[in-house]
Structures are given as C-alpha cells and as structure tokens.
C-alpha cells in the first residue's frame, strides 16, 4: 500500500499553521462586539414574533420565495446544454404549485452562438482576450439571474405578496440582469412589496476592514463571514447604520437567527431599509432554530426548483436520441472502466 504522501502532508500542515495562528490572534468576542457597536451599528435582539405582528405585516397577503437552478449536461465546449429553471412560490399553496420559468442555453443554437461571438468581440474591442468557454460561464450566470428576476416580477402581479424572499444577495441580480432587476425593483417599490435577499455565505470584506484596520494591522484576507462567526448571540442582529452604505443601492444587515454560530446577511432596497426592524423578527420566526439560517420556505423553493438527476435523465431520454447523446454529450472518460 502506498503511504500517505509526505509532500502533500507538509503543504497542508502549513495551511493549518496559518489558520491556527490566525485563530489565536483573533480579537476576543467582547472586543469585536464593542468595535461593531461603535463603528457599524447597534447589536439588537429581535422581539419574538407574535401571530398579531405577522398578520399586521402581511395584511392578508402571502409571502413569496424565489430561487433558480441551472443544470449542465455535456462535457466539452460547445456541446454543453444548460437547463435553467426559476421558481417563485407563495405560501398560499404547495411549494411545487408555484410559478415556474424555464430556459435553455446551447452554444450550437444560432442565437446563442451569436451571443457568444458578440461577447467575445466586445471583449476583444476592449483589448481583452476572452475564450468562448469563459464567455459561456458568464452568460449562464446572467441568464439564471435574469430568469429568477423575471419569475419574481411575474409573481408580484400574480400573487400580490407582501414580501419576496430571494435566495441570495441583490448584487448578483443588479450586476448580471440590470434591466430586469431595475424593472422588478420599481414595481416592487410601487406595490410596497418588501424584498429581502437572504445571504447564507457572506462574501464581503467591508466590516472586517473597518473593524480590524488600524494599529496591529489585520491579516489581509479576513472576510466578514469569519469576523462575525460566533460574535452574535442567537436572535441578535447587527443594525448597520444607514449612512455606512456597504452596498450602494442596498441596505445590508447581519444576523444570527438560530443556533448555528455563523451569521447571515439580509439585503433590502435602500428605500425599504426602515422596514428591516419589522421584518427581521419575521425572518427569524420563519427560520428553523436548528437549521443553517435560511428561512424554511426558501429552502423548500430551493429544493423544488432543482432539476433532480432522475428528472434530468428522464428529460434527456425523452427528448434526445440515444445515438446523438452518446456522440455529442457523453465524455470519453465516463466510458473508462475502473
């Protein structure tokens, strides 16, 4: 039997060293809390939710959760099919009976080929050399975001909800599908629908930079997720002061809804920032205490929107000729015998 690779062991141990040193040097929890309160905003405890407050918030209207999924089939460019599905579901019915939108992207379709070529040309004009594969992944991200936003927009009119929860932050929609997002935003604001992006994995660095900067400088890559780990008590949230403008057009605050010590973040439209204090108890009340910090409804939407493997296989078996599938989409390494 081969022994455990010594070279890799050494490299990994170095990683462990760095992390353990960082953990040792991490400022204590009380200090981080004090700094946060001073620099960022008050740490508040959300008031427990009562049936009355829910009724008042909802005003008899339902809640909508929005999520999307993308599944790729194939291995080598250009023979990769992406299947998109977005779902906006209301709590007035079963999660699977929500509003579904679907899309497909395949580089060999005429429109889609042009789309790729145009993007490559645009990049070239800007002096950038982009491979079609790289363009494809951008297009896929953008299409998914656009589809989700469209679903959300249609749900506004179809279900007339009091709030829409998105699985993920607002920056993605604003960057990848700006036009659709703008349209959604205007309609939601007009209808008074409070929109909230629930971020499970916080990817920003702003708080860490603020708090840990200064004398005794911080390690360069500490992100907000690491900073906030274990800092908030269950049921607490960090009411970021409005003027901080962590994200330009959005208002973001941080929270620990349940037992898991990591924090989540909630994005609001800036115009609706003042509703945060009302909606955070609702968000907490809809999040299982033992869970990952995601409202239960969003979890269900996430589950329902995903194209499961059996579903995918059935789709392929139904619509693609077996010979074509083998010829174009099954990579040779899948045929390797072990």
């Amino acid at each position: 039997m081969r022994s455990l690779d010594q070279g890799l062991q050494d490299l990994l141990s170095a990683v462990n060293n760095i992390l353990s040193v960082r953990e040792k040097n991490r400022p204590d929890r009380g200090k981080i809390r004090r700094r946060l309160q001073a620099e960022v905003g008050a740490i508040r405890r959300a008031v427990p939710l009562t049936p009355d407050t829910i009724k008042k918030l909802a005003g008899g209207r339902p809640l909508v959760g929005v999520d999307g999924s993308v599944t790729a089939y194939g291995a080598l460019f250009p023979h990769i099919i992406h299947l998109f599905r977005a779902l906006a579901s209301t709590t007035a019915q079963s999660v699977e009976e929500g509003l579904y939108l679907v899309d497909l992207f395949y580089p060999e379709l005429e429109d889609h080929r042009q789309e790729i070529e145009e993007a490559v040309a645009r990049a070239a004009a800007a002096g950038e050399n982009l491979a079609p594969e790289a363009v494809l992944s951008q297009i896929v991200r953008a299409r998914l975001a656009a589809l989700e936003v469209r679903a959300a927009r249609e749900a506004l009119e179809k279900y007339r909800p009091f709030a829409v929860f998105f699985d993920g932050g607002f920056l993605r929609y604003g960057t990848l599908a700006p036009a659709q997002w703008q349209e959604y935003r205007e309609l939601a604001l007009e209808m008074g629908v409070v929109s909230i992006g629930v971020i499970e994995e916080i990817g920003t660095f702003d708080l860490a930079r603020k708090i840990l900067a200064g004398p005794g400088a911080s390690p360069p890559f500490t992100c907000d997720r690491d900073l906030l780990f274990g800092v908030l008590e269950p049921g607490e949230w960090l009411a970021v002061r409005g003027e901080l403008e962590l994200k330009k057009t959005y208002y973001t605050c941080f929270a620990r809804p349940g037992a898991y010590p990591g924090a989540v973040a909630y994005d609001f439209f800036r115009e609706q920032a003042h509703r945060a204090a009302d909606f955070i108890p609702l968000l907490f009340g809809l999040t299982p205490r033992g869970g990952r910090g995601i409202p239960w409804w969003l979890d269900q939407v996430d589950r329902a929107v995903r194209i499961s493997r059996p579903e995918m296989e059935l789709l392929l078996a139904t619509c693609l000729d077996r010979g074509l599938r083998e010829r174009f989409f099954v990579p040779r390494r899948e045929r390797r015998s072990l």
Partner: peptide, 13 residues
C-alpha cells in the same frame, strides 16, 4: 421546527 410552521400557518401556509 414547530414554531416555524405555526408562523407559516399565519401566512396562510
């Protein structure tokens, strides 16, 4: 989580 279900029930679920 029972509490979550009760709150969702308030939202018509």
């Amino acid at each position: 989580d029972r509490q979550v279900m009760e709150n969702l029930a308030q939202l018509g679920y």
